[in-house]
Design a protein around this nucleic acid. Structure first.
Length: 155
DNA sequence: GCCAACGTTGGC
DNA sequence: GCCAACGTTGGC
């Protein structure tokens, strides 16, 4: 199958791309996705797929670099941990409701690509991220969009 | 802080 | 199955 491209949102206050760079083996599990659409997309991720790392709730919100999928979807253990903010009382250990993937650090862009700048790009017209009210924290990115953004980011 | 654009929950 | 109420995300 052709390589797939994804966008993952993260609030830099919570977990930034540089946090990922500092993580053990530059890899982290992507826990806490509690939206079925986003979960279903994660299930389609394949090891080695490319990831666009996006900082939401930042000023400005911006695409800041790349990562990749290091492990395909498996049960998100936080759903069973009553102490976790991601705890889900309705999750059944026999049939986990939520899954996560592992994400490995890639490269930072030479500069952050702010949302206003991304909106100006003709090549990115129709991109899910740029849709009004776009909230999904996991999104597909087309190969064309991926190439356009990497070029903008100096990679 | 406001609000648009959702998704979820639960009564009926 | 419908829909009102409510909660969340995230840009502005």
């Amino acid at each position: 199958m052709a390589k797939q491209y994804w966008l993952l949102k993260s609030e830099p206050n919570t977990f930034s791309l540089s946090d990922l760079a500092k993580s053990p083996k530059k890899t982290t599990c992507w826990e806490g996705v509690r939206n079925y659409q986003a979960r279903n997309l994660m299930r389609e991720m394949k090891k080695g797929d490319d990831v666009l790392f996006y900082h939401s709730n930042a000023d400005p919100p911006a695409a800041v670099g790349t990562a990749s999928i290091a492990r395909e979807a498996y049960a998100d253990t936080y759903q069973f941990d009553p102490k976790s903010k991601y705890f889900d009382a309705k999750a059944d250990p026999e049939n986990p409701r939520w899954e996560m993937v592992d994400v490995r650090y890639g490269k930072p862009f030479t500069r952050a690509l702010g949302l206003p700048e991304l909106r100006e790009q003709k090549a990115l017209a129709g991109m899910e991220l740029l849709r009004k009210g776009s909230r999904l924290s996991v999104q597909r990115v087309t190969a064309k969009q991926w190439r356009a953004i990497l070029k903008l980011g100096g990679l």
